[in-house]
Design a protein around this nucleic acid. Structure first.
Length: 460
RNA sequence: UCCUCGGUAGCUCAAUUGGUAGAGCGGGUGGCUGUUAACCACUAGGUUGGGGGUUCAAGUCCCUCCCGGGGAGCCA
């Protein structure tokens, strides 16, 4: 058994005068004639531990192993530090170079570009930036589970392999065991009866369709899992494999839905402020100067609220010349989103009651017969964070809208049956986990908040 | 897929109208009585993304391909 204390434990609970053993990776080392210093980090917290070496006790060759990136074990006494930058440090009595590095080690103690670090996903977690991102990612995940648990939701796990392409979502990855060099054909088409499921199968692009039946039995449910999109879109906010949170609630209308989204965002912001203070300080210093203002905006203010109709009016009367002209019956472009969330409101803003033509068939038709009870939450910088709606619970209306959008009713058979027997008003939303993480860390590329990002054309 | 900007030492970047490729960091060697991404001295390190072209002469101009950043479209 390896005996050691984490640096987090040493710095937060270690008592002066006690001895301890730590393991960690060298961030930087300074050797002078009488004394040497090494800052080591084991990932347990943002701070490094300063280890001090009396040069009378350590051979020159041994200290030469304290190169940036080397894994070391240090044993010693915890003392108060005379230095300004840390309250405590470790006076070493022994040092072992557990995993040495040579001069080809690519990470230096100075700052690297994010582009360079993207080429080495196996090493970049050893940087302040990525270790912080992944610690925040952990805490945000926990915050999400806690929030929904406290709100009385059940965590459900819909399948990742599905039979249907969720309406409105993007392109799918197909799952097959058919031999790609010799695909069986029948009547000029692929013979899926010979495939694993005896039918075409896809990676899930949304859990919503499967979440609805669970909500209409358990009341309030949420999903939190990976989602796969084969869109060729190459942008800083898109990824082929990402995580989504998709709550679905019986007996929630659109107002209830929005109130839930607001409580959710506030809970996450509060939780991270409490658990990731060092990381948030770091991100504010190096990545997003207004980061804490962003948190305050979520914690202390109601989000903006505006209908699609009002938003269109605002855009057309703004006097701005947009590349895409805003037009009733069409969706907002990203410059429209940026204008509304960034310039007009300066905080996240709900857009509600969209023209029915821009939203999928399952959103509830409003009494005006031309808008639907959908809601999008646009945030400055990252754009669309949340998309949700009150679902259409009236069978006749749902069937009419589905046929208007020329959907294959066979695939949606069971979805229709939910409305045929014991139908209930219900709502839900979907939230991109990585986009939320981007918003709350200030990172501006989705590839930098995923440990091993998968994007079109690149597996790293 | 389209538009746009870029690719120079391991990293971050310089290099005037086309005229001898440099610096800081990192590495090596030595020095320094407690440093804070320490400091001082010396040193090694380059087919300027690949290929082709113009020119007496190309990192610099032209063509083409590759790779990366940003934007558009689509979406979360």
């Amino acid at each position: 058994m390896i005996r050691r204390e984490s640096i987090r434990t040493v710095l937060r609970q270690g008592s002066v005068g006690s001895t301890t053993t730590v393991y960690g990776w060298v961030r930087t080392a300074r050797v002078s004639s009488k004394v040497a210093f090494a800052a080591i980090n084991d990932g347990s917290c943002f701070q490094n531990l300063q280890v001090v070496f009396d040069r009378d006790l350590f051979a020159h060759e041994q200290l030469a192993g304290l190169m940036t990136g080397a894994c070391v074990r240090a044993e010693g006494t915890i003392v108060e530090s005379p230095g300004r930058e840390q309250t405590h440090e470790l006076h070493a009595t022994s040092l072992e170079i557990v995993g040495p590095v040579d001069d080809a080690y690519p990470l230096q103690k100075k700052r690297h570009s994010l582009e360079f670090l993207r080429t080495m996903p196996h090493l970049r977690p050893r940087t302040n930036t990525f270790a912080s991102v992944f610690r925040v990612r952990h805490h945000l995940s926990l915050a999400i589970h806690r929030f929904f648990d406290e709100e009385g939701f059940y965590y459900v796990q819909p399948p990742l392999i599905t039979s249907s392409d969720a309406e409105g979502a993007g392109e799918t990855f197909q799952v097959t065991t058919l031999p790609l060099h010799d695909v069986p054909m029948k009547d000029g088409k692929v013979d899926f009866s010979q495939d694993f499921f005896r039918a075409p199968a896809f990676m899930s692009v949304s859990a919503q369709l499967e979440a609805e039946p669970l909500a209409l039995a358990l009341g309030k449910v949420y999903t939190f899992g990976p989602t796969f999109r084969a869109d060729p879109s190459d942008t800083r906010t898109h990824c082929a494999e990402f995580w989504m949170i998709e709550p679905e609630m019986a007996f929630f209308d659109l107002e209830d839905n929005m109130a839930l989204i607001e409580r959710f965002m506030r809970y996450c912001a509060n939780y991270l402020m409490e658990h990731c203070a060092d990381e948030i300080d770091f991100f504010e210093r190096f990545y997003e100067k207004e980061l804490k203002e962003r948190y305050r905006m979520i914690q202390e203010n109601e989000f903006g609220r505006i209908t699609y109709r009002e938003a269109m009016k605002l855009l057309t009367e703004s006097g701005r010349s947009f590349d895409t002209v805003p037009k009733w019956g069409e969706d907002f472009s990203s410059e429209h989103q940026r204008y509304l969330a960034g310039d007009v409101f300066g905080k996240p803003v709900f857009i509600t009651d969209f023209a029915a033509t821009v939203k999928p068939f399952y959103m509830r038709l409003n009494d005006d017969m031309e808008t639907v009870a959908g809601v999008d939450l646009f945030a400055p910088v990252v754009g669309e964070l949340v998309g949700g709606s009150q679902r259409e619970e009236r069978l006749d209306v749902l069937e009419r809208r589905a046929s208007e959008q020329r959907l294959d009713m066979e695939i949606y058979g069971w979805f229709m049956e939910l409305r045929r027997w014991g139908s209930a008003p219900h709502s839900g939303f979907g939230l991109g986990f990585e986009r939320l993480l981007m918003y709350l860390t200030g990172m501006e590329n989705i590839r930098d908040v995923l440990p091993f990002p998968r994007t079109s054309g690149r597996m790293f």
